[in-house]
Simulated assay, not measured.
Amino acid sequence: MAPVSVVIITKNEAALIAGCIQAASLITDDIVVIDNGSTDETLQIIRQYNCRLFQTNWYGYGANKNKGVALARYNWILSIDADELPDMELVTALHNLDLQDPKVAYDIKFRSYFGEKLIRFGNWGRDHHLRLFNRTTVKWSEPEVHEKLMVCNDIKIKKIAGHLHHYSVQNIEECNSKAVYYARLSARQYHAMGKKATFTKLYLSPVFGFVKNYIFRFGFLDGAEGLDIALAIYKNTRLKYAYLRLYTKSKPITQTTQGIHKELVVEY
């Protein structure tokens, strides 16, 4: 087994969590699952496997991921979601890594799916994220949504072979539901940061996002699913600024963000 802890956060992932844990067990003998209030069969499924389950309230994506990181046995952390599965090329690469330098973080390529269809173009077809890191030098930021890994200036970012296969949505209804859900979370975060819903953000940014994803990044080559994804991106951008405008009119700003000194915030 690799000296890496796999940290997974879950909520109502009964359809996917077994495959995720089975794949993770090919990597390590330390799998930490942080469950955030599942009401389906997720907990019963997790308990069938050799992993450590912890249940907690919802404090945000980054905060709950950091809870799992703190509970891990190893300093090297592979952070994945319940709908992400490492392939055998990635598993092999992880076993062959020389994990001696804590000031290295690894960027992993993604293959994203709409239902069972692999999405090859658009934003989803270009997806990759920092997911393997040493907790002594790297940690998650803790906003309510769009958490990022915070890496110091002297951290070296390297690529690694293989992919995480991301089964993002099962159908158009789930795709649209996620677009609305993340729009609300983003709007609250933007409001707390003091951002404004300008005319450009509210009306031009959604169109630009659609055109960039669907035309310039060839999302149309993914067929009906490519159009659904581009429309969901449009909807998400449009709604988050519409919600932000409503929050700005109805609520005072109660918190501000503080700058992070000598750190880079990285989101791939």
Score class of each variant (00 low, 15 high):
Phe216Asp: 02
Asn236Glu: 15
Phe208His: 09
Leu227Gly: 05
Ala197Ile: 12
Tyr181Thr: 15
Ala183Lys: 06
Phe210Met: 07
Tyr243His: 07
Met193Gly: 05
Ile233Ser: 10
Ser186Glu: 15
Tyr234His: 13
Ala192Met: 15
Ala224Asp: 13
Phe218Thr: 05
Leu221Asn: 02
Leu246Gln: 08
Ala197Leu: 10
Leu231Ser: 03
Tyr241Leu: 04
Arg245Trp: 13
Phe199Trp: 14
Val207Lys: 09
Phe199Asn: 07
Arg245Val: 00
Ser177Ile: 03
Gly223Asn: 03
Arg184Asn: 15
Arg245Tyr: 10
Ala197Thr: 10
Tyr241Thr: 07
Ala197Phe: 15
Leu231Gly: 00
Ala224Thr: 14
Tyr234Asp: 08
Leu204Ile: 13
Asn171Lys: 06
Ile233Pro: 00
Asn176Gly: 05
Met193Asn: 07
Ala230His: 03
Glu173Ser: 08
Ala192Gly: 15
Tyr243Met: 04
Tyr243Asn: 06
Val207Ile: 14
Lys178Met: 12
Glu174Cys: 02
Lys195Cys: 07
Leu227Met: 11
Tyr214Asp: 01
Arg238Ile: 04
Leu244Met: 10
Ser177Lys: 09
Ala192Glu: 14
Val207Gly: 00
Gly219Phe: 05
Ala242Asp: 13
Ala187Met: 11
Gln189Trp: 06
Val211Asn: 01
Ala187Asn: 10
Gly194Leu: 07
Phe216Val: 05
Phe210Ala: 04
Ala179Met: 09
Gly219Lys: 04
Asn236Arg: 13
Lys240Val: 05
Met193Cys: 02
Lys178Trp: 14
Ser186Met: 11
Arg184Tyr: 12
Pro206Phe: 03
Asn236Val: 03
His191Lys: 12
Phe220Ala: 02
Tyr203Arg: 04
Leu244Val: 00
Tyr243Thr: 00
